[in-house]
Amino acid sequence: MRKGGGLADERRAFRERLRMEAAERFVQGDENAVIAHDLRVSVRSVQRWRKAWSQGGPRDLTSKGPASLPMLNDELFVVLEQELLQGPTAHGWPDQTWTLSRIKTLIGRRFHKSYTVQGVAALLKRHGWSCQVPARRAVERNETAVAGWVKETWPQVEGPWRRSMPGSSSRTRPASR
């Protein structure tokens, strides 16, 4: 299971096996390009591995664990879920809609941790949350006014369609002469 940024445990173990196989090839005196080709990795990776191996031996090629741990661990995420279940109005927002930026603000206020909007999306997705869209339309919606706006106002906002002319940007190639 993936616990934060970086590789999953299985993938990290796989990469470590590749590095150990490269170390065996270093002992045999194989060239970086040959090792990279055989292991299907970049030459630059093999160069980095060889440098680490020459400085500290095979132990320097072992995995150091995940690159980073999540800022909100599982215990803190349970607390966040409880806060989210209270709803946005309990936290001072005027309506019952959770947005990523509101959740980001809530995390900052409650846990004093700074996430990006994309980080909040990844955090929620990692814990099984998904984007939800309201299933019904607003009670106040006036279908006649909407239809009139689409028919009369939108064409003015959108502007007239331009026809392609010679010299205009077009996806078709100009006619050959």
Results as ranks from 00 to 15, higher is better:
Leu106Lys: 04
Val41Arg: 04
Ala33Cys: 12
Ala67Gly: 14
Pro70Asn: 10
Trp53Gln: 01
Thr105Ile: 07
Lys51Leu: 12
Gly57Trp: 09
Val78Gln: 09
Asn32Tyr: 07
Asp60Trp: 15
Arg50Met: 12
Ser101His: 13
Gly87Ser: 09
Lys104Trp: 02
Trp49Glu: 05
Ile35Lys: 01
Gln86Met: 12
Trp49Val: 07
Val34Cys: 11
Arg44Leu: 11
Leu61Ala: 07
Gln55Lys: 15
Thr89His: 11
Gln55His: 15
Thr97Cys: 12
Leu39Gly: 02
His91Val: 10
Pro88Trp: 11
Trp53Leu: 00
Glu81Leu: 03
Lys64His: 12
Glu83Met: 03
Phe77Asp: 05
Thr105Asn: 10
Val34Ser: 14
Arg50Ala: 09
Thr105Pro: 09
Asp30Arg: 07
Pro58Ile: 02
Glu83Ile: 01
Gln47Trp: 09
Arg44Cys: 07
Ser101Met: 11
Ser101Asp: 15
Val34Leu: 14
Leu85Thr: 00
Thr99Asp: 12
Gln86Asn: 12
Arg48His: 12
Ala67Asp: 13
Asn73Met: 06
Gln82Ala: 02
Glu81Ala: 01
Gly65Pro: 06
Asn32Gln: 09
Thr99Trp: 12
Trp93Glu: 08
Thr97Lys: 15
Asp74Thr: 03
Glu81Lys: 00
Glu75Met: 01
Trp53Glu: 00
Ser42Asn: 11
Ala36Ser: 02
Lys64Ile: 08
Arg59Ala: 13
Arg102Ala: 07
Gln55Met: 11
Ser54Asn: 14
Leu106Pro: 00
Asp74Lys: 06
Thr62Asp: 13
Arg40Gly: 02
Asp30Gln: 09
Trp53Phe: 11
Leu69Lys: 15
Lys104His: 05
Asp74Ser: 05
Ala52Trp: 13
Leu84Arg: 04
Pro94Ala: 11
His91Tyr: 15
Leu80Met: 03
Glu75Val: 01
Leu39Thr: 02
Asp38Gln: 08
Gly87Ala: 08
Ala33Gly: 09
Trp49Lys: 06
Leu61Gly: 01
Asp60Gly: 13
Thr62Lys: 15
Thr97Glu: 15
